Simulated scan of single mutants.
Amino acid sequence: MKKLYFYAIGFAILIAFDTLTQVSIKLASGQAGAFSMSMDWLLVVLHNPWLYAAVLGYLGAFFAWMTLLKHAPVGPAFAASHLGLIPVLLISATYFGEKLTTMQLLGAVSIMVGIVFLSLSEAKHPHD
């Protein structure tokens, strides 16, 4: 049971950092404007706090992922790492007004179902 809490908290942290990264990149790129090979554009990007939030998200996700890989089976862990796509999808639809399609919803459900099947398989045949 202790392991289950570790995985749940660990993957929640990983998903939070992944979501922070993706949303921050979207916000930073929106505020930076069109790419321009100029010092002015670069200064705008470097003064954007969302750029640093994205870097923080990448670093947090990296350390969360490395910690999880020490303890979790690779197959289910890799699949579960894709759960981060679901909150990004929901935030994109609600906050950025992007259209949520049937295929995206089916993809999100497929990710969740796949993780459940991998977890059940791992529970029946642990590799410890």
Rank of each mutant, 00 (worst) to 15 (best):
M112L: 08
A80Y: 00
A79K: 05
M66K: 14
D18C: 15
L120C: 04
L51V: 14
L118N: 02
H71P: 07
F63S: 12
A28R: 07
S110A: 13
L90I: 14
L68F: 04
G114Y: 03
Y5G: 03
G107H: 05
L59W: 02
Y5A: 12
T102Y: 04
H82Q: 15
K26M: 01
K3V: 11
H71N: 13
P76C: 09
V116Q: 09
G33Y: 00
T67F: 00
M39R: 15
K2M: 08
I115P: 02
K2H: 03
F117D: 00
I9K: 07
G33W: 00
S24P: 06
H82D: 11
S36F: 01
T67C: 06
L4Y: 13
D128C: 09
L100P: 08
V74P: 07
S119R: 10
S36K: 14
L90V: 11
D128T: 14
A77W: 01
T101M: 05
F35K: 10
V45M: 15
A54H: 02
L42W: 09
L68W: 02
K99V: 15
A61T: 05
G84P: 10
Y58C: 14
G114K: 05
Q22F: 12
F35W: 14
A93T: 11
I15P: 01
S119D: 12
G57Q: 04
A123T: 12
T94P: 02
S24N: 04
S29I: 08
A123M: 12
L51I: 13
L83E: 06
L27C: 04
S92K: 13
V23E: 02
I13G: 04
F6Q: 10
G60V: 10
S110G: 13
D128F: 08
L68V: 02
S92A: 13
P73D: 14
Y5M: 05
D18W: 13
D18F: 10
A72L: 01
E98Y: 12
F6Y: 07
K99A: 15
F35R: 13
V113K: 05
W41M: 05
E122C: 14
L105C: 11
E122M: 07
T67W: 12
P76G: 01
V44D: 07
M39N: 05
A53S: 09
V45N: 11
L105M: 15
P126W: 02
S24C: 08
L14G: 09
V109E: 03
A108Y: 00
W65I: 03
A8C: 08
A12E: 01
L46K: 09
L106W: 06
V109S: 08
A32S: 13
G60H: 03
V113H: 04
V44H: 01
L56I: 14
P126V: 08
G107R: 07
V109F: 03
I86S: 06
I9V: 14
T67Y: 09
T21P: 03
H127Y: 14
F11L: 15
W65F: 13
F6G: 08
M103P: 08
